[in-house]
Amino acid sequence: MGTRYSKKAEISPRAIRGRSHFDRSKRRTLGVRERVLATANDLFFSEGIHETGINKLIDQAGVAKASFYSAFPSKDDLVEACLESRHKASLERLRSIEIQATSLESKISDVFDLLLEAASKSTFRGCAFVVAAIEQHGRNLPAPRWVRIHKVAVRDAFVRMLTSAGIKPAKEIAEQLSILYDGSLVTAAFRPKSGAIQRARLMAISLIRDSSPTH
């Protein structure tokens, strides 16, 4: 069972001063669960899971405390739901690239464009799954499990792209692409001006060109 929130938690001065990055006008059109998820997705990955308290989440989401606990009895339940929603959204974007992009090079380039988009945000701290797993390093906590699920899914997306283009060995090259993918996110987080994602994209395209059957 996840760690329970303390219902007596006080709102910190930082929480009072802070502003949610989530659009409040859009929030009003959502149900309680969706409001909390949207707010937690914003705060957990911009300020940190441990730094985000119950009162701040309730305040920013604009929900009653009883409704909050009814939707998410524990903080681990909320972290689990946030990571699952991020995972599904990420896979949808990857699947869209698989379907819409015409060539393998275009697909790979578009994947790294997704990383560039993420890294351009002021709240970017690296891969959200890795950041969450670092904060939640316990064996039975949701983040370490979801980071494994997500990374395998990204690798499998690369495998499908490579296989459809006739690139072999698809699994081995997909592993190499995954290393470029993950490594560029880490470098971009700590060295934002390094051009890591752009360089990783060029390396990825060079890799698939060298592996092309017509090369």
Rank of each mutant, 00 (worst) to 15 (best):
F158L: 04
D156Q: 11
I173M: 12
H137E: 07
A89N: 02
E92I: 09
Q176C: 10
E172F: 14
Q100V: 13
V159A: 07
A133I: 10
L94A: 01
A119K: 10
E172R: 15
I149C: 11
A71Q: 00
Q136W: 03
S120V: 14
L177E: 07
I108A: 05
E135H: 10
V159T: 13
A174N: 08
D156F: 02
A101R: 13
I99D: 08
R125N: 08
F124N: 05
I173Q: 14
P169H: 11
S122Y: 05
A170R: 15
I167H: 09
V79A: 02
L162C: 08
L162E: 03
R86C: 00
I149S: 13
P142D: 07
V130M: 07
V152W: 06
A81P: 00
R148Y: 12
H137M: 03
V130L: 11
E172K: 14
L116G: 13
Q136L: 04
I167C: 09
T123E: 07
A143L: 06
S178I: 08
F72D: 00
A119S: 09
I167E: 13
R139Y: 09
P142S: 09
G166L: 08
S109R: 03
S106Y: 00
A157D: 03
L116M: 09
D113W: 02
F112L: 00
S96K: 11
V111G: 04
A71D: 00
F158A: 05
R95I: 01
M161V: 12
F158C: 05
S90M: 02
K151W: 11
D156R: 08
V79S: 04
V131Q: 10
V130Q: 10
D76L: 01
R148F: 13
I99P: 00
E135N: 09
E175Y: 13
L116W: 02
H137K: 06
K168Q: 15
L177G: 06
P144H: 10
A89Q: 02
V111W: 06
F158P: 04
L116C: 11
